[in-house]
Amino acid sequence: MSTNVTIQHGEEINNSTGVSAKKLLMWTFLGSDVMFFGTFIATFMAYRNKSLVGPYPEDTLNIPITSVSTFVLLMSSLGIVLALHYLKEARMGLAKFWLLMVIIMGIGFIGFQIYEFSHFANMGMTPQVNLFGSTFFTLTSLHGAHVSLGILWLIFLLINEYRGNLNSENAIDLEIAGLYWHFVDIVWIVIFALLYLITANDGVPPGGIPWIGGH
């Protein structure tokens, strides 16, 4: 089989697909991750309003705080495309600045999530207390784990950038990490709409016991 050797973003393309193998691998992984998160979101929606004991979404979810964290994550997506753009143009100062900003925003998002989880725990909402708690914590903490992994990845890239190992020649490495980061962002877009905005007004379902407060 004949192969064409080309260079895309500093990566030699010498396979029969004609596209970057790293990028192809990342898109395939993201495709599988869509189904992974889809399963947990479907489970959450299937069990929506099925908890017979509290606390219920209307007792716990804090939309203003989550809106801020959502905005922070959205803006981190802007940060990473800017970092990649400047890296490709070999404007290293701006590339480092935006990559650092993305890491800070990612840590900020995780900070919001830690605050939210501890607030819920103080109220008496834990994964084992009811169906809402189980499905909510499973999905949001899996997402949080993805964000945390992304932060570690970006810190590693930033260190490489400072050492001079990441530059316009191998910008594909940041592009791959960027794809992962954007994916984490789009998953949160769906989670914010379904788990928070649509669910936040759900109260006691038929047959449920009204919640009278935490521990």
Binding site: L30, V34, G38
Partner: peptide
């Protein structure tokens, strides 16, 4: 690749 996985995911969902 991505859209195929999305469609399969939404279908199962």
């Amino acid at each position: 690749i991505f859209i195929t996985c999305m469609v399969v995911g939404i279908l199962f969902f």
